[in-house]
């Protein structure tokens, strides 16, 4: 569980980036953290991981203030996956790459290998264990990043723009793995994204930041089908949401929309 109390943050000699944010993220949630560029969404997530510390206010992890912690202290409770997988790959095999975290924690060898196997399985990389990581496709490298974080058995996973630069099939694959990790293992997933469609399809709760303030905190249906104009927060309405809204439907996929539209048209005649 992550909880923030009146958290504020500003860079040196800069405007405030985070203004008085109070929020609470329970175990097992699947959250999308949305906001336009510079809204503070990445900053907030970095505060969760102790990569930065608030100017004022406090961040609590399972009720404990993390003001005195550094990321390494939290690594077995929160996994944080960065956007660019190339900047973190350091080992010569996928297996060693994933084992880096558990080895850092000086776990016994059997436990390391058990945790690595589990993380590889959860991200569909078991068959790639002996592969040189840099030859993986972009989508696979992203999953490797997730596996590397999972190997420390965190209960919370924070992912920064994890689907950026991927085609829709790769995105779907990545999101299905994350959904399974969330549902089967009960790991909290916090997704920082500007892909509205991903938020709409997968998240069960959406937080929207705008100019450093938390302006929305509810289920995605409420955000995408509500009366609120997303443009005001610098967000784009995804195509399927806009289409659905125009016809008073709530369809997630193209197939859904077509069926619902035809059905409704038939009923009205």
């Amino acid at each position: 569980m992550i909880e923030t109390k009146e958290v504020n943050f500003a860079y040196r000699r800069g405007e405030p980036v985070i203004n008085d944010i109070d929020c609470r993220i329970e175990d097992g949630e699947f959250i999308a953290l949305l906001g336009h560029n510079g809204s503070g969404k990445t900053t907030l997530s970095r505060l969760f991981m102790a990569l930065m510390h608030p100017r004022s206010g406090a961040v609590y992890l399972d009720g404990e203030d993390i003001a005195k912690k550094e990321p390494a202290d939290l690594a077995d409770r929160i996994g944080y996956v960065f956007q660019n997988p190339d900047l973190q790959i350091l080992a010569d095999t996928v297996w060693d790459e994933v084992a880096y975290g558990p080895r850092n924690k000086k776990l016994p060898a059997e436990q390391v290998s058990a945790q690595v196997e589990e993380a590889l399985a959860a991200t569909g990389l078991t068959d790639f264990a002996e592969v040189y990581p840099r030859t993986l496709s972009f989508g696979q490298k992203r999953r490797l990043g997730v596996a590397a974080a999972l190997a420390l058995k965190p209960r919370i996973l924070i992912l920064d723009e994890i689907t950026n630069g991927q085609d829709s099939l790769e995105k779907e694959q990545m999101m299905n793995y994350l959904r399974a990790i969330n549902e089967k293992r009960g790991i909290t997933v916090i997704l920082i994204t500007h892909d509205m469609n991903i938020a709409r399809l997968y998240a069960r709760r959406v937080l929207v930041l705008h100019n450093g303030s938390l302006v929305f905190d509810d289920v995605p249906e409420e955000l995408f089908n509500g009366i609120k104009d997303l443009g005001e927060w610098g967000l784009e309405q995804p195509t399927m949401a806009a289409l659905s809204r125009a016809f008073g439907l709530y369809a997630l996929t193209v197939g859904d929309f077509c069926s619902q539209l035809v059905l409704k048209a038939g009923e009205q005649q």
Partner: peptide, 18 residues
């Protein structure tokens, strides 16, 4: 664009949802 789609669909599928 989405506007074109909505107006044609409204025409073809009646005034669904209104």
């Amino acid at each position: 664009n989405i506007g074109e789609a909505i107006s044609e669909l409204k025409e073809k599928f009646g005034r669904v949802g209104l």
